[in-house]
Amino acid sequence: MKISKIVLYDEPTVPEIQLEKIREFISNALNIEVEVKGNFFESIDHDMCKKIATTRIFDLKNPFKVHTPSTEEIQIETQNKDMSNRKEMTLYDGFELQNIISKHIPSIENTLHIILTNKLTATFDQNDFRYHARSLISSNPTIISTAGIIEAPAKPKQYYLDLMTNFSENRVEEVMKKYKGEFLEYHDPRLYEILEGYVLQAILYYKTGEAFCDKKECRLFNAHWQKDLFYSQIENKKICKHHQEIINDFNN
């Protein structure tokens, strides 16, 4: 798939200076024009807010069923606030959300649109018949969920075992404090560096159709654990030989 330009849409929790760093990283790595636009969800009308609210998920164990949104839910979409400030994160069906967005994105030849959002996207897995949070919904437009990057890769195993002991709201706070630094939290400064890798993943996935990388030492690795996410995107921060060849071909 030929790509001549990337259009990157920001989201409320990503500072402008960090978005510019992501733009520079992608532009330099792939020798491609990257245009940064404002938050996609700030420019949508009431009708589209209502459509987006219909993609909300409340039953994790059954395939998607169109939700009939309340007036309050539609109002939340129109306000377009930082979703991480809410006590309970709302899940959105990633494919349904993508389909709605695609109808409001201009179709420009060889241009890939990447939407950053703090909405928590999920897809239904036919293998275990339940929804799972997802960081990346690929295609054009691509959706990268910052909430998904935080919620989808698992925290340390012992974290969950500790939570099961005398579970309570205070216990959650205690366990989070105990393992602080071992996983991403909302507004975590490490998120922006990790976002670089996800944007790169999105672009190469769209271009080649290859599903990520199986090597933890590569920034194209699809991490299922937070510790692996930190290693591939921050500690190691390298590209494997195979994907470097694809990048070289991209630049040529």
Results as ranks from 00 to 15, higher is better:
30 L>T: 01
127 N>Q: 04
7 V>K: 12
212 F>R: 05
103 K>D: 04
111 T>L: 13
33 E>P: 12
222 N>S: 11
201 Q>F: 00
127 N>H: 15
158 Q>K: 09
232 S>R: 15
150 I>C: 03
86 R>H: 10
146 T>M: 00
2 K>A: 04
89 M>C: 03
208 T>S: 10
74 I>Q: 03
102 S>H: 07
221 F>G: 06
243 H>Y: 06
162 D>Y: 06
29 A>N: 09
55 T>N: 07
130 R>E: 07
73 E>Q: 15
244 Q>G: 14
85 N>Y: 12
215 K>D: 03
214 D>C: 02
224 H>G: 12
172 V>D: 03
50 K>C: 01
119 K>G: 04
91 L>T: 12
191 L>W: 01
90 T>E: 14
94 G>Y: 14
224 H>I: 02
138 S>T: 04
91 L>S: 00
136 L>V: 02
72 E>L: 13
93 D>K: 04
93 D>M: 10
250 F>K: 08
204 L>A: 08
238 K>I: 01
66 V>T: 14
168 S>W: 10
150 I>Q: 08
6 I>G: 14
219 R>C: 09
17 I>Q: 04
151 E>G: 00
64 F>N: 01
198 Y>H: 12
180 K>P: 07
33 E>G: 00
72 E>H: 11
246 I>T: 02
127 N>R: 14
213 C>Y: 07
247 I>Y: 03
47 D>M: 09
204 L>P: 15
226 Q>P: 10
65 K>W: 00
8 L>E: 15
227 K>A: 11
187 H>W: 11
89 M>L: 13
52 I>R: 02
106 P>M: 10
66 V>A: 02
134 R>F: 03
134 R>I: 08
2 K>G: 08
91 L>N: 13
83 M>Y: 10
191 L>N: 07
222 N>P: 06
172 V>I: 14
223 A>N: 05
5 K>S: 03
250 F>E: 10
177 K>L: 06
247 I>D: 00
158 Q>C: 01
155 K>N: 11
209 G>Y: 05
148 G>N: 11
134 R>K: 08
185 E>L: 11
116 L>T: 07
92 Y>I: 06
109 E>N: 05
248 N>D: 04
38 G>H: 05
245 E>P: 02
35 E>M: 13
8 L>G: 09
75 Q>W: 15
85 N>G: 11
250 F>A: 10
79 Q>M: 10
99 N>C: 13
89 M>P: 02
40 F>C: 08
7 V>M: 12
196 E>N: 15
173 E>T: 13
34 V>L: 12
161 L>I: 13
157 K>W: 01
143 I>S: 06
57 I>H: 11
79 Q>F: 15
244 Q>T: 06
117 T>N: 09
45 D>F: 08
171 R>D: 02
83 M>E: 10
249 D>K: 13
200 L>P: 10
136 L>S: 09
19 L>R: 14
228 D>I: 01
1 M>V: 04
152 A>Y: 06
28 N>V: 03
125 D>A: 03
169 E>L: 12
191 L>C: 08
127 N>M: 07
90 T>Y: 13
114 I>F: 06
239 I>T: 09
5 K>P: 14
20 E>Y: 06
43 S>R: 12
130 R>P: 05
58 F>Y: 12
218 C>M: 09
4 S>Q: 15
216 K>G: 03
